[in-house]
Amino acid sequence: MAKTRIEATINGEPVEFLCEPRQSLLEVLRDVLNLTGTKEGCLTGDCGACSVILNGRLVCSCLVLGLEVAGATVETVEGLAAGTELVPLQQAFLQQAALQCGICTPGFLVAAKALLDSNPNPSETEIRYALAGNLCRCTGYDKIVRAVMDAAALMRQGQGRASSPMQGREA
């Protein structure tokens, strides 16, 4: 099948790739660009493991065609941290033990970022509904919701980048 040349901005960098019309953005990210941080859980948009931010909007990358991202900006889990410095969401997930197997974690981080980008002070209920499209089978969501609340608080205080990633939480 003929491939189309696509230009897009992925995690802040200009990217060019060739893509078949039937390839999803998820396949492009994982199989063409080797950005395997975005995960496949269902291919039907039900689990959120493949969440990315496309032009500022949270989407399931399994439901977007690669062709559709021509000229677009895409943010994936790989683009969250600034170099070796973790962002508050990543720090909070570690500190709250908000992951077990970790397969859903990239999707949750991206979905939570999309929430906090638009609502810096969400209530527990708002967090739960914002994350409704992301399934986690390990945690029961408790520690994930707490981590998002913590990250939001850290970001509001502007302290998010102050602590090193490997610092444990205080007593």
Binding site: T38, V77, A81, F93, I103, T105, M166, G168
Partner: peptide
């Protein structure tokens, strides 16, 4: 105690390699 998990950074940055990530 509750130290940070040793595999944590890999899992919050997308670096951790699951079976389907190998080629």
């Amino acid at each position: 105690t509750r130290p940070l998990r040793p595999d944590g950074v890999d899992k919050v940055t997308g670096r951790a390699k699951y079976g389907a990530d190998y080629s």
